[in-house]
Write a protein that binds this DNA or RNA. Structure first.
Lengths: 251, 251
DNA sequence: CTAAACCATGACGTAACGTGAGGGTCAAGA
DNA sequence: TCTTGACCCTCACGTTACGTCATGGTTTAG
């Protein structure tokens, strides 16, 4: 069984010996063996584990989180697939940033400035589209989940842009109501709730009043949704959630 | 002129107020204005600057480095293009990691394990292919640069794999000589120098003895090359460089 | 007026190493 | 055998980029 010293491994991976010391120290990656002279001796299995650590590290996961993920499964293929999935998500994020930069360049050249929100929102970690699938899994069951995945898989970048624009418009209208002091139980708010539900229906899945009511709750009970929605404007998530609750409590 | 508070900006960007305080504190992003109540007031230009900061931050550049990059140009389009270029490099890296993971999954399923080096080298920051263009710009002039770019732009992923395999084989043979204690001024080493030059000739550009000699020097004088080559084996860069020097000093 | 949310500055703590000290081991060459 | 340079070990302080909390002023809505 061939093993490698800490320097060999560090060199191959483009990391420092100190890093490997650190990982040993915190129990993240302990060399399986030690040589007679007390030198660390890394086996192939150790190297595989390091591959996964470095993949997650590339994605800015903390070492605690990495340890947790690595302990979730003992099947090497599962572990690799999980890491692969994470890389895909980061690729998606970077592509979105790249596209936003392209738009910014275009805007500069044309003298049509982007809004502050357009410039910045892409840097958040929360992709509402991704969590729509979670919402539907929670409220719609697995058949609905599959149907949505099938429907959205064919969407182009332009489709997503349209979907986002539609949502933004509803959100802007809701914010308008809030600014004017219109109440969440008003007719105007109810109309926007209906528009919101129609939009989900159109872009994702058949959104029954029951599902929509559940979503409304989740928009304030799940911090990720709440924060994401509130990035379009303070208190939007709460207002929308309240409007949804009112809409279906009288139905 | 509309400005935004620190909380507004933080929310839009998915970062914390503390982060913006920190950036103000270190001079990386100072709000252009303050309100009468001393609240920070961020202008559109401030937001644009933040966009760039966050882009580079996404790529793990240190804040010092980010400040330096932002001060390199005052032209907004140049700045955006530069950031865009960096994003592309990171996209490339992630794609390489993804491909390596796919290979690892495949290898696991087929029971044909990857080498430790294959698992780990992709995590380094140095892409030798990218720096080949630097080498040629340094030693070959701009016509050669353009010709190479043209030639390599048509290469497929499989081409690059073949190129890499060819280089690996030459490196392995050189390491074999080193292990056997064969000297850098031996006939065997000279043959491998020739093979190395031919390979560059075949894959990149016409590699004259003069250029090759220059490359040999650079392999030890430029730390990036030296480290990259030495990841295939200790002392390889020095050995190859010495062999190249010998090869052309007697010609 | 009250309360909650937001703002300010100040300051200690944290995560993930980087850097250096001091000393042992290995391998090649003289 | 001795010397030297590269590599290894453990230990420990320092650095970077914030996170968290304290204290107190400001804004907004009820």
């Amino acid at each position: 069984m061939e093993t490698r010293t800490v320097g060999d491994v560090a060199r191959m991976a483009g990391i420092t010996v100190r890093t490997l010391h650190h990982y040993d120290e915190i129990g993240l990656l302990r060399p399986s063996e030690r040589r007679d002279n007390d030198y660390r001796a890394y086996t192939d299995a150790d190297v595989s584990r390091l591959q996964q650590i470095l993949t997650y590290r590339e994605l800015d996961l903390g070492l605690d989180e990495i340890a947790r993920l690595l302990n979730e499964t003992s099947d090497p293929v599962d572990a690799l697939r999980q890491a692969r999935h994470r890389i895909d998500r980061q690729l998606k994020k970077l592509r979105r940033i790249a596209a936003r930069l392209d738009r910014a360049i275009d805007a500069e050249l044309k003298g049509t400035p982007m809004t502050a929100y357009e410039k910045l929102e892409v840097f958040g970690d929360f992709d509402p589209n991704e969590f729509v699938t979670e919402a539907e899994a929670r409220w719609g069951g697995s058949e609905l989940f599959a149907a949505t995945a099938k429907r959205t898989s064919a969407y182009t970048s332009a489709d997503w842009k349209r979907q986002q624009a539609e949502t933004d418009e509803i959100y802007r209208a809701l914010l308008g109501l809030m600014r004017e002091g219109v109440s969440a139980d008003s007719t105007a708010a109810a109309e926007l709730v209906d528009a919101h539900r129609s939009s989900i229906d159109k872009w994702f899945y058949e959104c029954t009043p029951e599902i929509h009511a559940g979503l409304g709750e989740m928009y304030v009970s799940d911090e990720r949704f709440r924060q994401s929605i509130n990035r379009s404007g303070d208190g939007l998530a709460e207002f929308l959630s309240a409007a949804i609750a009112v809409r279906y409590s009288s139905a």
